[in-house]
Nucleic acid binder design. Structure first.
Lengths: 137, 137
DNA sequence: TTGCGTGCAAAGGTTTTGCATGGCA
DNA sequence: TGCCATGCAAAACCTTTGCACGCAA
């Protein structure tokens, strides 16, 4: 990973600028489209999809896929060495569809447990806990 | 959960019959459609999607979503009463597609943790851990 | 008889692709 | 100058929905 794209275009630059202003937030491709449209400097959606894909490959942003029916969301991860990258878990309510983002040390430990006891390297970015949220219980 | 559907239609019956013949295999909605079409007894795709959804709700089959662009796949899980069934977690390898069933007290404790600390009632039947298995690491 | 299940067709929504144009190096 | 990136439109894709008809209980 960390394969830089060949060209440094204006679109790539402003997209990165925007992503840097919302670290830790989860935004969709549609959010990005809307943001630049409302700024008066729209970017083609294919460009946005293609740039986001590149940035994921480079490790600059993370991509979260919740399920097949909701759009994928992206999160700025940082451009330095990301040894300190935060792990984010997701809980999705089966009833109201609400998505909850969790940063929790205890949950992070299950990754280590799965690896040491079950020989399985958990990918938290792809893993979603299904169940019932507080309001729907 | 485990809410039986009200009617026992012919389509539901043959769909279940088919699923029972491929336990442990991962099949897509399109696979099911094609199977019955080739059998000469086609079933409408909306029926298939709706029945599969019901069966997931009832816990008879599991649904696995790899990502947003590939079709979801389903796996027969069994119809025994799940009232006293032990809790079973699933790990799916993103690379080879292998599915691992886990019975583990430590993992079960995360359900309690999610409930007490995050107000979220985990549904283990629907939750899949994605990552890499031992062979693919 | 009641109302759920079915099936066709069409919509829905996200993501990808074709292709001509424009811009970076 | 040589490619790559862009952007528009349209396609591709899986899945869901509307609606009339049929069938289970």
């Amino acid at each position: 990973m960390a394969v830089r794209s060949k060209y440094n275009t204006k679109q790539r630059e402003v997209l990165l600028d925007y992503l840097r202003t919302v670290p830790g937030e989860h935004i969709t491709a549609a959010d990005v489209c809307r943001y630049f449209r409302e700024q008066g400097t729209p970017i083609g959606q294919s460009t946005i999809y293609r740039q986001l894909e590149s940035l994921v490959d480079e490790g600059v942003i993370n991509k979260y896929i919740i399920d097949g029916t909701t759009p994928a969301c992206f999160e700025y991860a940082g451009e330095e060495s990301h040894a300190d990258a935060e792990i984010c878990f997701h809980c999705k309510c089966e009833k109201c569809g609400k998505l909850i983002h969790l940063h929790c040390d205890e949950l992070e430990s299950i990754g280590a447990h799965l690896l040491s006891h079950h020989g399985f390297r958990l990918n938290p970015m792809r893993t979603v806990f299904y169940g019932l949220c507080e309001d729907c219980m």
